[in-house]
Structure formats: C-alpha cells, structure tokens
C-alpha cells in the first residue's frame, strides 16, 4: 500500500445554514489517481475544493473537521494558504487561460515565485509543456495569445501551467467535461502519465472515464461519502446498493 498523501477526518462543510458535506473521512494515497463520482450537487466538487482551500473565497462557508496533507492540517491557523496552493495545484472544469501569451501563461506561477531569469523561465515553460503533451503543438508559437488555442489545447496548457509550479498533488475538477472525445482521450492519457510523479484527484461525471483513469473511486451522494475503494471493485462488486444503482445508471 502506498503512503497516504491526503487524509480528511470528519470534514463537514456548510454553505450558510445548509450542510453541503457531512462528516467526510477519506484517505487518498500518493501517486495514484483517485476519482470522485456522484450525481450533480452531491458535494464532490465542493469536497475537492476544500483540499486546496479554494472554498475560502466563497463567503458564508463554514468548515469543521480536519484535512491533512502530508500529515499537516491545512486548516490550521499557521498554514500559509499560498504555499498550500503551490503544493496542491488545481485544474478547472472550464479551461481558463489568462489573456496573455502561451509562454506568459505557463510562466505565471514561476514568476510569482520570484523567478525572473529568462533562461530559467524558458526551461520551466518547455518542460511543463512537454509534461502536458502539448509542446510539439505550440513550440513555434509560444508568444501567441493562449486564447487562440483550441479548447483541448487550452486545457492541456492549463495543466502545464499548474505543473510549472511543481505541485505534488493535482486536483482536477471535471477537466474534460467541455472537450470533444479526442481531446478527452489526450487528457486521460496525460493523467495516466502524470500519476507516476503526482498524486491526482479527479472529479468526473463520466463513469467510463473514472473507470479508465482511476485507481481508486469515491462515490458521493447528498453530501456524504457512500463508498470508497479500488476502482475495479467499485465498478464490479460495490458493497452499497446505492453505488451499484448509480454506476449501472439507474439514477443520477
């Protein structure tokens, strides 16, 4: 069994008076792909966003319980949320390139970290784009606007942008839901490659995608973690009736 990278204990989250997550306890191992599945509004995205404290940005959110990343409680007062987010990167559902060149998009994170040396930046941009399987497509037009890329290319560039900060964990919030099948396949291939070096947590609506890319699967329903285990087991012989019904498409 691999080491535990992220661990939550009784994590409960309220939007105002409404409970959105109910006492979630989970252990996510390092350098594996863990998928969160469940119907819309089940809390899987909300849960994902608690792992790098993106929910901090939303007013009226109240959280109890613990989230441990490398055994450190990230909701502890001493934790620097900026450093946390460098360690726990995030790729969003809708590709969100900045209105800058491809180069400047990828160099954004390193620049914030104070790297201004041009050679060094070029090096980081190149390796990051290579890791995200998009280098060959963009190497001759790094100074073009990132907005000119196709949706799938934008998303891979956003992944490169995340990699440039050298995170250990990458959270992906339905990264392929807005993409065509070919772009989706590329992203999945990329995830498969990335898990050698990174811990990946992916939220997906696409059951086949979860089955294809993940090692572990967690099924959420109405703010609760119903079942969590090896993907193979969840998709063949789930313990809970609810999980089985969702996976076989009887509701959701």
């Amino acid at each position: 069994m691999k080491e535990i990278k992220i661990k939550t204990r009784d994590l409960t989250l309220y939007y105002g008076p409404k409970m959105a997550l109910n006492s979630i306890s989970i252990e996510i191992p390092e350098k594996e792909v863990t998928a969160f599945i469940g119907p819309s509004g089940c809390g899987k995205s909300t849960f994902l966003r608690t792992l790098n404290r993106m929910n901090d940005l939303i007013p009226n959110v109240r959280i109890t319980g613990e989230v441990l990343v490398d055994s450190l409680n990230i909701y502890d007062k001493q934790i620097d949320v900026v450093n946390l987010r460098k360690k726990v990167g995030m790729v969003f559902q809708k590709s969100n390139p900045f209105a800058k060149s491809i180069f400047e998009n990828v160099a954004y994170g390193p620049r914030i970290n104070g790297i201004n040396n041009k050679t060094k930046l070029e090096e980081i941009v190149e390796t990051s784009l290579k890791k995200a399987f998009i280098w060959e497509e963009v190497k001759d037009r790094l100074n073009d606007s990132a907005m000119a890329l196709s949706g799938g290319q934008q998303q891979r560039m956003c992944i490169a942008r995340t990699l440039a900060v050298e995170p250990e964990i990458i959270l992906m919030d339905e990264p392929a839901s807005a993409l065509d099948p070919i772009s989706t396949a590329k992203i999945e291939e990329l995830i498969f490659e990335l898990k050698k070096n990174y811990t990946i947590v992916i939220v997906t609506h696409n059951m086949q995608q979860a089955a294809r890319v993940s090692d572990l699967t967690a099924f959420f329903y109405l703010g609760e973690l119903i079942e969590f285990g090896k993907t193979k087991k969840i998709f063949t012989t789930p313990d809970k009736k609810h999980t089985e019904e969702y996976i076989t498409g009887r509701f959701g």
Binding site: M54, M90, F92
Partner: peptide, 26 residues
C-alpha cells in the same frame, strides 16, 4: 471572470498579486 481569479490563486498567487497581474490588466 471569476475563473481567472481562481486560476491565479490556485497557482499560489496572493490576492494582491492576482489583482495586480490579472484584475487590473483585465
């Protein structure tokens, strides 16, 4: 867009860095 602010923050930018580099140019 909120997505751009989130992208910047998720890369480890502080709020002020996000305002300076993303919000004001936008």
């Amino acid at each position: 867009p909120r997505e751009l602010r989130e992208a910047s923050l998720a890369l480890g930018a502080t709020k002020w860095e996000t305002i300076k580099r993303i919000v004001i140019p936008g």
